[in-house]
Simulated assay, not measured.
Amino acid sequence: MRKLLLLLAVVLASCASVAADPRYTVVKVDLRTEKLALFLNDDTGVAFKRFDRLDAWLKAHGRQLFFAVNAGMYHADFSPVGLFVRDGREEASLNLASGAGNFFLKPNGVFLVTDDGPRVIESSEYPAFAKRGGVRLATQSGPLLLRHGALHPALIPNSDSRKIRNGVCAIGHTAIFVMSETPVNFHDFALYFRDVLHCRDALYLDGTVSALYSKALGRSDFVRDLGPILGVVSP
Rank of each mutant, 00 (worst) to 15 (best):
M1G: 11
L6V: 12
L7T: 15
L8K: 13
V11Y: 10
L12D: 07
A13V: 03
C15N: 12
K28I: 01
E34V: 15
K35L: 14
L38N: 03
D43C: 07
A47L: 08
F48T: 07
K49T: 13
D52Q: 04
R53I: 15
L54Y: 03
K59L: 01
K59V: 08
G62H: 00
Q64E: 09
A68E: 02
V69E: 01
Y74A: 01
Y74V: 02
F78S: 04
S79T: 05
L83V: 00
F84V: 07
V85L: 01
R89S: 10
L96V: 11
G99R: 06
P107G: 14
F111M: 08
D115Q: 15
G117P: 08
I121C: 12
Y126W: 11
A130E: 12
R132F: 01
L137A: 00
A138D: 02
Q140A: 14
S141C: 04
P143Y: 02
L145F: 10
R147Q: 12
H148C: 05
H152E: 09
A154T: 11
L155K: 07
R165C: 05
C169L: 14
C169Y: 03
H173Q: 08
T174G: 12
F177E: 03
V178N: 02
M179N: 13
S180L: 03
F189C: 10
F189V: 07
Y192H: 11
F193N: 09
R194Q: 14
D195S: 13
C199D: 01
A202C: 09
L205A: 05
A211P: 15
A216C: 10
S220W: 09
V223H: 02
R224M: 08
G227W: 01
P228D: 11
P228R: 10
L230P: 03
L230N: 02
